[in-house]
Amino acid sequence: MSIEQTVPRAAGKAVPLFSLGRVWTIATSTVTQLVRMKTFYFLLAFALVVVAVGNFNIPATPVKELSMIKKVSFGTMDLFAWLFAIVATALLIPRDIEDRTLYTILSKPVRRIEYLFGKLTGVLVVVGTSLVAMYAICAIMIFARESLYLTAEHDAMTASGQYTGAEIQEQLDLIRQQGLRAELGIAVLASFFKASVVAAVTIFISTFASSSLFTIIVSILLFLIGHAHNMAANFWLDESGNSIFVQMLVKVIKILIPNYQLFSFSEGIVQGEAVVSALVWQMGGLTAGYLVVFLLLSLLVFVDKEF
């Protein structure tokens, strides 16, 4: 019986503390995972909503009809974006545990922050792609209706012979104002900001949640509270006669729960208001702040979690 000689292994290559390459690998695999779940099928439902609203037959002026198409399309887009962000994010970590992919990933030299960041990036890539696709569908519909209305209105006003060139132009400009404008892209960005914050909060909840269902329910509840607390605060304070207890409660809620209502600034843009770029930048900064803080909070829970 020969005695086997143990040869010491060569020292492994030092693993960098943080690697964007590893994050990107996890992000792309998350995108693949979500695409395989046939998540993009909801685009069909969205297209149906847009086509349906584009063909509503109610007596309204072209301006009002265009405004209605935009409101319904962008409202639905916003709804799909945040709902998708919650559901997709809530499914990811439990699915990785269930498939045992998580063990394989974490046994490699992958930091837990990289794993969480990669997952979040993957979700955001899918949400972003979906929003761009939805915007394209909606832009086609708005452009088609706008062109139709412009031609019809121009022909009708010219044929009547009662209007001057300036009056016709004024009317056409009014229709164009409610048509396809570059600013609508910022409205899509606003929905993306909102969905990003929602996804970051959901990934934080999923790090300590016992099931996907729990994560989805709690995230939706937080979303509703985060949206309503500003609106409801005045109502509660008024009803309670400015009671100290209600004031304290409102403050606690404001501090602990994200203010999602702030991210609804797409509504103003859709209604034709001018975009203030400084405010959009500030909202982008706030979104980044939320992402960093909730990612770090997720790490705090996830860093030494045993599976």
Partner: peptide, 17 residues
């Protein structure tokens, strides 16, 4: 930010009671 967004008409004020 909320005050600025409301002033710019980008954010709607809370609906009436």
């Amino acid at each position: 930010l909320r005050d600025q967004l409301v002033a710019a008409n980008l954010l709607l004020p809370p609906p009436g009671q």
